[in-house]
């Protein structure tokens, strides 16, 4: 499974409106709910926040990759949000987070879950790519960047 297999414009939001971790996660989850694939939203939200309690998924270079394995979804799902001004996501480098990738998978899809996370880890390693993504203004631009990357 590849990232472009599950990425669609209706699961991308630019800009995000939320001003804190919980609001941003809810926005990203709302996108997935509207697109279908969420069977239990409350359970899914709890799984994401439980994972955040173990340690923030805010990484370096303004990237955050909240993720959870949960029976609240029936397939591997990905939503992307961009908040150009950034929010405090308790990132490991202390910087504000601007790019958010929410990845959810049911427990029996560990392989596909790992494949998508690995692909994102490699894509977001590039500072230039992250800068371009942060500057994207529409979901179509985001898809285009992943296609060209």
């Amino acid at each position: 499974m590849e990232l472009l297999d599950i990425l669609s414009t209706n699961c991308i939001k630019v800009p995000l409106l939320g001003d804190n971790k919980e609001e941003v996660i809810r926005e990203l989850l709302d996108l997935l709910e509207a697109a279908g694939g969420i069977v239990d939203k409350a359970k899914t939200f709890a799984a994401i926040m439980d994972r955040e309690l173990l340690g923030s998924t805010g990484l370096e270079r303004g990237v955050a990759i909240p993720h959870a394995k949960t029976e609240g979804v029936n397939r591997v799902l990905l939503s992307i949000g961009i908040k150009p001004t950034g929010i405090d996501f308790q990132s490991i480098d202390g910087e504000l987070s601007r790019l958010f990738f929410l990845i959810l998978a049911p427990p029996d899809k560990a392989g596909h879950h790992i494949e998508i996370l690995t692909e994102l880890a490699k894509a977001t390693k590039s500072q230039a790519f992250c800068r371009l993504l942060s500057a994207a203004r529409t979901p179509e631009e985001v898809i285009e960047l992943f296609t060209e990357e």
């Binding site: 173990l54 998924t57 370096e60 394995k69 029996d108 790992i114 690995t118 994102l120």
Partner: peptide, 23 residues
């Protein structure tokens, strides 16, 4: 690699390894 990228915590690595084994 996911632990090195700090996307996974060491405890997640072990949990997902078991999931992959079951898969």
């Amino acid at each position: 690699d996911l632990v090195s990228a700090r996307i996974f915590l060491p405890m997640e690595q072990e949990e997902y390894r078991r999931d992959l084994e079951a898969d």
